[in-house]
Design a protein around this nucleic acid. Structure first.
Lengths: 340, 340
DNA sequence: TGATTATTTGCAAACGTTTGCATTTTAAGG
DNA sequence: CCTTAAAATGCAAACGTTTGCAAATAATCA
């Protein structure tokens, strides 16, 4: 009822009510010290009383600033699975929080839905002031296009990739290394890497894995790297097939994500292979469910909360024409029951 | 570079380039049949060539329409846990898709972050055209306030609750009934209900549970309803405590969500209680991980995809001043390994 | 060809803010 | 009490679209 369009209260209306000019009301509501403190407060009170709210379309047009950030889930494949990856969605949640804290709102989108030219679609059109891309995808083409356009941009991914844009992400190489070393120290001799080494973040994890293997002088034959998509379903099938074909030729698995680890675990459990005694398994991410599994999943934790905070910081820097940079976050080994 | 503010191409600029008036370009870009087809196409081509894009702030101001829908996660408690509930986030993903299909964008928010007066904050301020609330929360106060304001609104929740707004949700009563009956037909005699009967959706599930128990003339004493928050952590603790205090006084669990079921399963497995032989357990939602657990979780599936589609439909109806209504969705029993 | 109608374009006024600058009011200083 | 400076307010012009209406152009018909 209060929203009936016919008589929606406007700044001018409020000004008339108060007997002052629109400029005064505008400044008062924006807490501009140009306006005397008392008038400011009384106008703010009046506004609240009539529950007036500024028309954002208008102020955005006038100020050329939206206070909106577009967050794009850069999904790898077309499966529904990947959009429901709890890790990605955790990042979105944390970003939402971090953005709100700074007075920004979150416009959600994903690479399947959004138009081709993200900068044009979101920035030139005044839909948002900046873009945060979650995940580098398989190709970085679209992201680079955004960077080229000069639009404020931060991406979640692997910060070691050479790029002309700011990338925030975990130390994936170190994560892979830590994970592998943990298995080695548990006595594993033939350790499988399960994941897609083509993908930026995953390839770093693979590097770390290889380094640890080499240092320990363990078997680093190709057959111990099992290329596999990021979904648990695919991991489940891959491990099933591999064991079927070659028997249990490994005693440890470094999985590229928790979801992948869970898929692998299921395949093993179905064959009555004991975890962690026959095979130790470690994941990556530390999603909420990791500790609910049986056995609870040992994993490399990514700190999404501070990641979100940092990404927002970097984006705000760009808004203010300050320097921006890639940031690499520390990772932490969370020891649970799936490894010895 | 193409985004440098100094010379951002505007409708007027494009018009000058083409040697026509702004109105013509505007209409052409909006594919208005008033404009001759050839000019329309050539102008569209010109726009693409200069990769021009309309300033949405301006058009929103002029048209009083944002083509944005605010989606509010109505979180129950303050734990971080609940924001990472994969079910909620699945719903968000599906909504995103359904909205995009209809030419709308998704502004994400949650009840912790958003201001008190949602209608004012999102609608009056021209941030969005309508609101979709996910979850009824513990109190429906805020939602009702939105409804009162007359703002376009659809909520995901229990469609049986009496309300003056459109609620879309599963047939929770039937779901609870089906779940319980499934356990009964598997031979369970003392079936525990695990969840929060205060909460709208959950209380319906509890009703269905009670009905099935009564029909089968089984034990329906109060001790078999274990009130418990919606997170798996709490469920884990509750089940642990209960078993510790009273032993294994049940042989089946109807859990109010998959996450709750998973928490319960963990508590039982730690005590070497066999699932499903000692205790059968059934969840609700059918999250992606349900089948990854060991044993794979039997559950009642909620069809979020069509739910999302329907919610958007109902909202669009309201935009067009057409009738809107609550819709109840069918649920489906997904039989897996956690029940006999 | 000229009158009449249908098609295609252009003019100019909104939409509701913000903000540089001019103006008024108040305070300070002599 | 007048001058000057400081503080508070108001005027009016943007911001970049869309759209009712008027005008121009093209098509139709007698």
């Amino acid at each position: 009822m209060s929203l009936s369009n016919e008589n929606k209260l406007t700044l001018a209306g409020l000004a008339k009510l108060a007997g002052v000019s629109t400029s005064t009301v505008s400044r008062a509501l924006n807490d501009n010290p140009l306006i005397k403190k008392e008038t400011r407060e009384s106008l703010q009170a009046l506004a609240k009383q009539h529950n007036f709210s500024l028309n954002r379309a208008a102020s955005r047009l006038r100020t050329q600033k939206t206070n909106v950030v577009a967050v794009i889930l850069n999904l790898i494949d077309d499966t529904d699975q990947s959009i429901s990856d709890p890790f990605l969605l955790k990042v979105v949640g944390d970003l939402n929080q971090a953005l709100n804290q700074k007075g920004y709102e979150l416009l959600l989108s994903n690479s399947h839905m959004a138009q081709d030219d993200w900068a044009n679609y979101f920035i030139s059109s005044s839909r948002a002031d900046g873009i945060i891309v979650i995940g580098q995808g398989k190709s970085t083409e679209q992201v680079e296009k955004v960077a080229m356009s000069g639009a404020p941009l931060v991406v979640w991914g692997d910060p070691n990739t050479k790029s002309n844009y700011a990338v925030v992400g975990s130390n994936n190489d170190l994560g892979g290394y830590k994970a592998t070393q943990h298995l080695i120290s548990g006595g594993c001799k033939r350790i499988l890497f399960l994941g897609d080494p083509e993908h930026a973040e995953m390839s770093e994890r693979h590097k770390g894995y290889s380094r640890a293997i080499k240092e320990a002088k363990l078997d680093n034959s190709n057959e111990l790297t099992l290329s596999c998509d990021i979904t648990s379903k695919v991991a489940y099938e891959k491990i099933g097939d591999a064991v079927l074909a070659k028997g249990l030729f490994f005693d440890g698995i470094v999985a590229t994500s928790d979801m992948v680890a869970l898929g692998a675990m299921k395949a093993l459990k179905e064959r009555y292979i004991n975890i962690p005694n026959d095979v130790s398994i470690i994941g990556f991410d530390d999603i909420a469910m990791a500790e609910l599994f049986h056995p609870a999943l040992t994993t490399i934790k990514q700190d999404t909360k501070s990641a979100a905070k940092i990404m927002v910081e970097q984006l705000l820097n760009q808004f203010n024409n300050q320097a921006t940079k890639s940031v690499v976050l520390d990772v932490e080994l969370i020891k649970r029951m799936s490894t010895r």
